[in-house]
């Protein structure tokens, strides 16, 4: 074997070992929990710190009254993956973006930043738009926060490419329970001039399905095939009407795992094949604010 090739192989192996070593060290997620500004309420910061430690992360808590500069300095020194900011005094709109700005100044934008505290819904959107990865509002379970951070860091480190933290791409379809696909279809045809482009029977689920394209979405008419059909049960209980909404997503299995870890109840823990031939799964309405939500993985 020529010298150069041998060297490259050995060097390659060496590199690989270093990589493994790095992965082992990097494996533990490092988090800096910080209290920017003058606010002294640190119950939430302390509880989150403990919960993230229990979830296997390294957590450093800065203590009270940290300026954005001090926070960023500590984050760089401690080589953290994530900064968690907590504020209950209403100063979040000024101080959280300051932390982002300081991260940019120090070329440390690869550190992810999330926030929590007494933060009105209308501020959440603007803070997230400015680059705060996620704002967790009061009442969020520590499990949701820990799972979110795990996934966000794994994606950020490139260990995983699941996009499960991105919102669904669109509403794929809206499911409507009806006594008869034909009768309902003629209603949509007569009054809205919508046409059925496909009718299919899915015997394993006991339904007959009619699809009506509508913009970049579809209506899905659902008719029970037999008395055991879940659609029949729905009709008996509530009559005809809105049944479920389906979100188009990537990586349905990973998303289901994520939602389960976040504490949601799933009807289908594994995806199954839906009427359109795509993998689908339903979430339980009990932990979904009363709505039946379907996930569907489409190829686009």
């Amino acid at each position: 074997m020529p010298q150069s090739v041998r060297f490259a192989t050995v060097y390659g192996m060496y590199l690989e070992n270093i990589r493994e070593l790095e992965v082992a060290i990097m494996d533990k997620i490092r988090v800096l929990i910080a209290k920017p500004g003058l606010d002294g309420h640190d119950r939430g910061a302390l509880v989150i710190s403990q919960a993230l430690r229990d979830a296997g992360m390294e957590v450093i808590y800065t203590g009270l009254r940290q300026s954005p500069k001090q926070i960023v300095r500590a984050a760089i020194q401690e080589d953290v993956d994530v900064i968690g900011l907590s504020s209950l005094s209403g100063a979040h709109n000024v101080l959280f973006p300051e932390v982002l700005k300081e991260l940019r100044n120090k070329e440390a934008e690869d550190i992810l930043v999330f926030g929590g505290g007494v933060i009105p819904l209308e501020d959440v959107k603007s803070l997230e738009a400015q680059g705060i990865l996620k704002i967790f509002t009061p009442g969020t379970s520590t499990k949701v926060v820990a799972t979110y951070i795990e996934t966000a860091v794994a994606e950020h480190r490139g260990e995983k490419e699941s996009h499960v933290l991105e919102p669904p791409k669109k509403v794929d379809h809206i499911g409507i329970a009806v006594h008869s696909v034909e009768e309902a279809a003629s209603f949509y045809s007569n009054h809205f001039h919508l046409a059925v482009d496909k009718v299919a029977e899915v015997p394993e689920q006991g339904v007959k399905v009619g699809f009506l394209p509508l913009g970049n979405c579809k209506l899905e008419l659902l008719e029970p095939l037999n008395s055991d059909s879940p659609i029949q049960a729905f009709l008996d209980k509530r009559g005809e009407g809105l049944h479920h909404v389906a979100f188009a997503v990537d990586n349905i299995q990973q998303r289901l795992d994520q939602l389960k870890k976040e504490g949601l109840k799933l009807i289908d823990e594994e995806p199954k094949t839906g009427a359109s031939g795509h993998p689908i799964a339903f979430l339980h309405p009990k932990t979904a604010h009363g709505s039946l939500i379907e996930l569907i993985e489409t190829e686009e």
Partner: peptide, 9 residues
């Protein structure tokens, strides 16, 4: 040190 906190709480 008062940045963002004046008049808030």
């Amino acid at each position: 040190m008062a940045l963002g906190e004046v008049g808030k709480v």
